[in-house]
Design a protein around this nucleic acid. Structure first.
Length: 858
RNA sequence: GGGCCUGUGGCGGAAUGGUAGACGCUGCGGACUUAAAAUCCGUUGUCCUUAGGACGUGGGGGUUCAAGUCCCCCCAGGCCCACCA
C-alpha cells in the first residue's frame, strides 16, 4: 500500500486552529435563528481530564455539531467548578496556594480539552473561583435573605475535633472524619440554610411534566423530596401540662399504640428525664452512634424510660409509657413516634427488646388471631381492623379515613403532609469557597448583609494552613470590619458556601459572562434559557440537579428573569469501566504497565505474571485508569471520540479496551484511505445530477439516503453507537461499489459527501480534512446537514422471510410495488415452502408487506 | 427494608410484536510480502458426519398466525435511597 499514512496530529491541530480563527463556535443572541443550548456538566479542575470527561464532552459535542448543522444557533460553553476542598488539601500537602493550584490546573485541563477539538465557545469561559463570578452569587444570597429564603439557625452538624471543622455527610466515613480518622462529634452551630422545603410541592409537581428527563432521575428526586400524607396528633403526658405531638402515616393503627418514643434531642426528652440517673450517659450513647449506612444498619435500638405515661387521645383509658430512643429522628415529622409494635418492624424490635406490649389491631386476610401468637415480625400489610372500637371490621384505608374524620370532629389532630426533604445547609468552615456576605455587629450581634456596592466580599490571599480549622477565622485582620449601618465594629461571616452554590447557576453566567453589573441580563436569559440538552453523570441526579431547580424558583421569586426549570432535556451517561490488574502480591497495576504475551497478561517491566480482576469503574485506588491524553496523543482525538461513542449505548457503562481504541483508529485511517483512493474518480464529476443510474448505483443511493435519515434519528435519540454502526455500513457500501461510468462516479461522490458530513459530529478533524480534499473551500463546521430524498429510502426489490407455522422456511424477493396477493402467491409457490407445507391444508396466510409472510397449515 | 435498572454468540452490542445476532472486537483460514507490519478476501451462536435439519435471547408459565419484545411468577447482577414513623 502506497497511500501515505494520515498525519493525525498535524491535521487535528490545523483544524483546531482554523475553527478558533474563524470563530466557528462563538455565538451571539440572534432572534432570526432558533437557539439550542447544549450543556455538559462543568468539570472540577483536578489537573487532568479523565475518560469520563472525554465521554461527556464527546456526547455534548456530537449534539452541538449536529444541531449547528441543522441550522440552530448553538450555545456550547465550558467553565470550571473551581472552588472546593481538593484545592485546599493539595495546597496543604504541597505548600501551595489554593488559587495558584486551581488556576494552574485550569490551564492544563483547558489545553487538554482544546486537543479534543470541541465545538465550544471559549469566549464564554467561566471560573467560579473568580471574584467576578462569586460577586453575583453573593448578591443572590442577599436577595434570598431579603426574601426570607436564606436564614441562619443553630443546628447539629458533624464536627471533626481534630481538624476543627464541620464535615459534610459525605466526608464522614463510618462515623469518623475521612482524613483525621477521629470519631465525629455532633455539635450545635449556627449555620446558614436555604429554604428549599418551601418549594417541596412545586419541585415535586413539576417533575411530572419533565418528559425529557430520564425516569430514573425523576424517581430519585421524587423519593428524595419524599412527600408523605399522614396525621399529626397529640398525646397528653399524664400528671403534667405537656403534650407530645406525633406524626404517623398509619393512623389506622392508633388503638395498637403501646408506647411513645421521643428522639434523644427532642426538647421534651431533656425536660422529662433530664434529672434521671443515667440520662446523660444514654444521650452520649445515642450521639456516638455513627451516621454511616452500615452503622445505622447494625445499630441496636436503645431506649430510656422517662417514667411518664401518655394518654391515647382516642381512648383516654389507655396509658402507655413514654420512652426516649435512638431510632427516632428529630429532623423528620415531629421527632416523636407512636409505637405500634404489632405493625411496624422498628417498633416491634424495640418492644421485643424492652418487653413492651405488642397488641395486634390488624388481622391479615384469611387469618385468625392465632396468627399473632409467637409473632416473629411486624405485620404491615392490609387486613381487617380488630380491637379498635369504632373502626373494627374496616380495612386499612377505610380506617384511616374514619380516623381522619374523627380527628376533624374532635380536633385532637389534623391531616398533615410531611416532606423528607430538609432545608439546604450551605455553611462550610472552609477557606476556598464563596464568602457568605454578612457581618455581625459586635455590640448586639445583629446580622446585616454587606451592601451591594461593597460586593464582592473577596477572599484574602495571605492565608496559612499552619493550624487546623478555617484559615479565614484565624486570619489576623480579614474578618474585622465595621457595621454598614452604624459604623460600629463588626465581624465578617467566616463561613463560606457549599460549592453546590456555584454549580446551581453557572449556566446562567455563560449567557452573559462579562456583565459586571449583574450575573446575567434578562435579555440573554430570555433568549437562551432553558438549557435544551444537559449531559452529565447520574451521580448528580439528586443534589446538583435538585439545587439548580430550587435556585431557578428562588431567583424567579427575587425578580430575576429565569424559567422555573433550568434543564428542559437531561441525559445521564454511564460510567467508564476497565479491567483491573494485580501482581502476584496483590498490588494493583496500571493498565499501561501491563501487556499481553502469548495470550497471558504480564508486566511490561519484567514479564512477571499478572492476575486479572473485576471490570469496575475507573478509580485511582484500583489503578484501572487510562489517561485520555495518552490516547489522544497516540491515536488522535477523532479515534478517541469515535471509540467512546461506538460500542456501548451512552447511558450504559462503557468498558475501555485497548482493542476497541485500535479498531476506532483503524476506521479513521480507513476513511482517509478510501477517500484518497477514490479521489481521481470523484474530482472529475459534474455538478448536474445524471438522469439515469445503474442498478448498483441505485442501491448505493438508497443506502446513502437511508443513512442520512438514520444517523440523524439516532443522534436525536442519543443512540450514538447505532449512528456509528450506520456510518460503518455506509462506508462498507462505498468500498463495495465499483463505478463503471460517469453516473456511477456522480453517485459515488454523493455517497462520499454524505458520509463525511454524517461522521463530522464524531470525527470533526478528519471530516474537515476530507471535505477539503474533495475540493471544497468551505468549513464543514459551518456547513448544513445533508438532506435525504424520501423516494430513495426504499429499495426497488424487497426481501422478506416466509414462515410456515411461525418458523422461517425461506426468504423471497419481490417487487416493492407487489400486491398482497402477489406476495402470497410468490411465497406459497416457493419450493422450500411447498416442502414445509408438505401437502397440509393451508388454514390462512398472513402477509405483512415489507416484513413477513406466515403460512398457517395443518 | 424500599425504589429503579439490566440479563441476547467468545466479547461490546443490533432488532416500530414480523428473516434474532446489524455494526464492531476477538478467533480461524487465505491473498499480498524474502519476512513482518499494514491492507484486502473468506469464515466465526450451539448441536447433528453432510444435503438439510434441530435447538437457541437468565428460568418457568401465558396471550398471539407470530414473543428477545406484551402479561404473570421466579432467579441472578448492578445502581440509588434508607431506623423517614
Amino acid at each position: 500500500m502506497t497511500t501515505e499514512r494520515y498525519n493525525i496530529k498535524q491535521t487535528e491541530e490545523k483544524w483546531q486552529k482554523i475553527w478558533t480563527e474563524s470563530k466557528s463556535f462563538e455565538v451571539t443572541e440572534d432572534a432570526s435563528k432558533e437557539k439550542y443550548y447544549v450543556l455538559a456538566m462543568l468539570p472540577y479542575p483536578s489537573g487532568r481530564i479523565h475518560v469520563g470527561h472525554v465521554r461527556n464532552y464527546s456526547l455534548s459535542d456530537v449534539v452541538a455539531r449536529y444541531k449547528k448543522a441543522k441550522g440552530f444557533n448553538v450555545l456550547n460553553p465550558m467553565g470550571w467548578d473551581a472552588l472546593g476542598l481538593p484545592a485546599e488539601n493539595a495546597a496543604m500537602q504541597n505548600n501551595l496556594h489554593p488559587k495558584d493550584w486551581t488556576y494552574d490546573n485550569i490551564a492544563q485541563m483547558k489545553a487538554q480539552l482544546l486537543s479534543m477539538g470541541l465545538a465550544i465557545d471559549w469566549s464564554r469561559e467561566v471560573a467560579t473561583c473568580d471574584p467576578d463570578y462569586y460577586k453575583h452569587e453573593q448578591k443572590m444570597f442577599i436577595d434570598f435573605y431579603k426574601k426570607g429564603l436564606a436564614y441562619r439557625k443553630e443546628s447539629v452538624v458533624n464536627w471533626d475535633p481534630v481538624e476543627d471543622t464541620v464535615l459534610a455527610n459525605e466526608q464522614v466515613v463510618d462515623g469518623k472524619g475521612w482524613r483525621s480518622g477521629a470519631p465525629v462529634e455532633r455539635r450545635k452551630l449556627h449555620q446558614w440554610f436555604f429554604k428549599i422545603t418551601e418549594y417541596g410541592d412545586e419541585l415535586l409537581e413539576a417533575l411530572k411534566t419533565m418528559d425529557r428527563w430520564p425516569d430514573k432521575v425523576r424517581i430519585m428526586q421524587e423519593n428524595w423530596i419524599g412527600k408523605s400524607k399522614g396525621v399529626q396528633l397529640s398525646f397528653d403526658v399524664k400528671n403534667t401540662d405537656e403534650k407530645i405531638d406525633v406524626y404517623t402515616t398509619r393512623h389506622d393503627t392508633i388503638f395498637g399504640v403501646s408506647f411513645i418514643v421521643l428522639a434523644s434531642d427532642h426538647p421534651l426528652s431533656e425536660k422529662l428525664a433530664g434529672d434521671k440517673e443515667g440520662f446523660d450517659d444514654f444521650i452520649q450513647q445515642c450521639q456516638s452512634t455513627g451516621t454511616s449506612e452500615e452503622a445505622v444498619e447494625k445499630a441496636e435500638k436503645i431506649g430510656f424510660d422517662t417514667g411518664y405515661k401518655a394518654i391515647n387521645p382516642l381512648n383516654p383509658d389507655v396509658e402507655v409509657p413514654v420512652l426516649i430512643a435512638n431510632y427516632v429522628l428529630m429532623g423528620y415529622g415531629t421527632g416523636a413516634v407512636m409505637g405500634v409494635p404489632a405493625h411496624d418492624q422498628r417498633d416491634f424490635e424495640f418492644a421485643t427488646k424492652y418487653k413492651l406490649e405488642i397488641p395486634p389491631v390488624i388481622l391479615p386476610e384469611g387469618e385468625t388471631e392465632t396468627f399473632f401468637e409467637d409473632q416473629k415480625e411486624a405485620y404491615s400489610g392490609d387486613g381487617t381492623l380488630i380491637n379498635s372500637y369504632f373502626i373494627d371490621g374496616m380495612n386499612v384505608s377505610d380506617a384511616k379515613k374514619a380516623i381522619e374524620d374523627k380527628m376533624a370532629e374532635t380536633k385532637i389532630g389534623e391531616v398533615k403532609t410531611v416532606f423528607r426533604l430538609r432545608d439546604w445547609g450551605v455553611s462550610r468552615q472552609r477557606y476556598w469557597g464563596c464568602p457568605v456576605p454578612f457581618v455581625y455587629r459586635e455590640s448586639d450581634g445583629a446580622c446585616i448583609p454587606v451592601p451591594e456596592d461593597q460586593l464582592p466580599v473577596e477572599l484574602p490571599d495571605d492565608i496559612d494552613y499552619d493550624a487546623p480549622g478555617n484559615p479565614l477565622d484565624r486570619h489576623p485582620t480579614w474578618k474585622h470590619t465595621t457595621c454598614p449601618e452604624t459604623g460600629e465594629p463588626a465581624i465578617l461571616e467566616t463561613d463560606t458556601c457549599d460549592t453546590f452554590f456555584e454549580s446551581s447557576w453557572y449556566f446562567l453566567r455563560y449567557l452573559d459572562p462579562n456583565n459586571a453589573e449583574r450575573g446575567f441580563s434578562d435579555e440573554a436569559s430570555e433568549y437562551w434559557m432553558a438549557v435544551d440538552q444537559y449531559i452529565g453523570g447520574v451521580e448528580h441526579a439528586v443534589l446538583h440537579l435538585l439545587y439548580s431547580r430550587f435556585f431557578m424558583r428562588a431567583l424567579r421569586d427575587c425578580g430575576y428573569k429565569v424559567p422555573d426549570e433550568p434543564f428542559a432535556g437531561l441525559f445521564t451517561q454511564g460510567m467508564v469501566t476497565h479491567q483491573t490488574f494485580a501482581d502476584k502480591d496483590g498490588n494493583w497495576l496500571f493498565p499501561a504497565d501491563v501487556t499481553q504475551k502469548d495470550g497471558q497478561y504480564v508486566t511490561l517491566k519484567d514479564g512477571a505474571p499478572v492476575t486479572t480482576g473485576a471490570v469496575t469503574k475507573m478509580s485511582k485506588s484500583k489503578k484501572n485508569v487510562v489517561d485520555p491524553q495518552d490516547i489522544i496523543d497516540t491515536y488522535g482525538a477523532d479515534a478517541a471520540r469515535l471509540f467512546i461513542l461506538s460500542d456501548s449505548p451512552p447511558d450504559r457503562d462503557l468498558e475501555w479496551s485497548e482493542a476497541g481504541i485500535e479498531g476506532a483508529w483503524r476506521f479513521v485511517n480507513k476513511l482517509h484511505r478510501i477517500t484518497e483512493e477514490a479521489l481521481p474518480n470523484l474530482c472529475e464529476v459534474g455538478t448536474n445530477q445524471p438522469s439515469d443510474f445503474s442498478e448498483d448505483a441505485k442501491k448505493l443511493r438508497s443506502t446513502v439516503h437511508q443513512s442520512i435519515k438514520g444517523v440523524a434519528d439516532d443522534i436525536e435519540a442519543f443512540h450514538m453507537n447505532k449512528a456509528v454502526a450506520r456510518i460503518r455500513e455506509l462506508s462498507n457500501a462505498i468500498t463495495a461499489f465499483k463505478p463503471q461510468d460517469s453516473a456511477d462516479s456522480w453517485a459515488l461522490r454523493e455517497a462520499f459527501e454524505a458520509l463525511i458530513k454524517l461522521f463530522n459530529p464524531m470525527m470533526p478533524h478528519l471530516a474537515e480534512e476530507l471535505w477539503q480534499s474533495l475540493g471544497h473551500d468551505t468549513i464543514l463546521a459551518d456547513s448544513p446537514w445533508p438532506s435525504y430524498n424520501e423516494k430513495l429510502l426504499a429499495a426497488d426489490t424487497v426481501t422478506i422471510g416466509v414462515q410456515v407455522n411461525g418458523k422461517v422456511r425461506a426468504t423471497i424477493s419481490h417487487d416493492a410495488s407487489a400486491s398482497k396477493e402477489d406476495i402470497e402467491k410468490i411465497a406459497i409457490n416457493d419450493p422450500a415452502i411447498q416442502k414445509a407445507i408438505d401437502g397440509k391444508d393451508i388454514k390462512k396466510t398472513i402477509v405483512v408487506p415489507g416484513r413477513i409472510v406466515n403460512v398457517v397449515a395443518a
